[in-house]
């Protein structure tokens, strides 16, 4: 009995340390690899607690190995956009300009029921109000309402016009996303011009977003970051 108690205490400390090592991301929305690690840890941790003939180390070694691999993978994903895309995929647009992209929904195996459920969770009850919807890498769907259905802001007063797609990320951590540039129909030439105007090279850009109208935001890299 005492052995089980002490083992449970030790494993509690090891798992708490492991989750701390994985960082705060683990406590929020889970990426696929993080979900796998979390499920495996919970299974592995229970075995040495139940089996007193099995050495504790048989539980601790795989837990630490999984957590360390996950942290190292996160580090590689931080540096390589290609690797990040391979491991966690990329967000997918399922409604654009108010039109449901049915092929994309089929590809993602999302049903209309899933879409409506996600809408209701965000207090949207009418599909015709949605201008844009994107499935995040965590599986969560984010919605942008049409202009008429968005809550009014001060800048909306006396302003007409139609709803634009939300800005997309075109440079992340110094790396240009040519796919986004193509989707926004802006082109490489436009990007070079903007970077020149702002006196910054793409390598020194931490984040650059733009919408299809060419309205952009640039956040430069901080020195030492």
């Amino acid at each position: 009995m005492a052995i089980v108690l002490l083992r449970a205490v030790i494993l509690y400390i090891v798992i708490t340390f492991s989750l701390r090592l994985m960082g705060k991301r683990q406590l929020g929305e889970l990426q696929p690899s993080e979900l796998v690690v979390t499920i495996l840890i919970s299974n592995i941790a229970s075995v040495p607690v139940e089996e007193s003939s099995m050495p504790m180390i048989m539980g601790i070694v795989p837990i630490l190995t999984l957590v360390c691999l996950d942290v190292i993978m996160s580090g590689i994903m931080l540096k390589s956009a290609k690797f990040r895309k391979l491991m966690i995929g990329s967000p997918r647009i399922i409604i654009s300009g108010g039109e449901i992209l049915q092929n994309e929904m089929k590809r993602l195996r999302y049903t209309v029921d899933d879409l409506f459920e996600a809408m209701r969770e965000q207090q949207i009850f009418d599909i015709t109000q949605v201008h844009y919807a994107i499935v995040e890498t965590t599986g969560k769907i984010s919605f942008l309402l049409k202009k008429d259905y968005q809550p009014a802001e001060k800048q909306d007063v006396n302003e007409g016009g139609s709803t634009k797609n939300p800005p997309s990320v075109i440079i992340r951590d110094g790396i240009v996303d040519p796919e986004q540039l193509r989707l926004l129909e802006l082109g490489e030439k436009w990007l070079r011009k903007i970077l020149r105007e702002n006196n910054v090279s793409e390598k020194n850009v931490f984040l650059m977003t733009s919408d299809s109208g060419g309205s952009y935001t640039i956040i430069k890299k901080q020195t030492g970051a």
């Binding site: 630490l64 942290v71 190292i72």
Partner: peptide, 10 residues
């Protein structure tokens, strides 16, 4: 630091 710690532990 986390990455270095993980590499060392591994």
């Amino acid at each position: 630091n986390r990455i270095i710690t993980s590499i060392v532990i591994l």
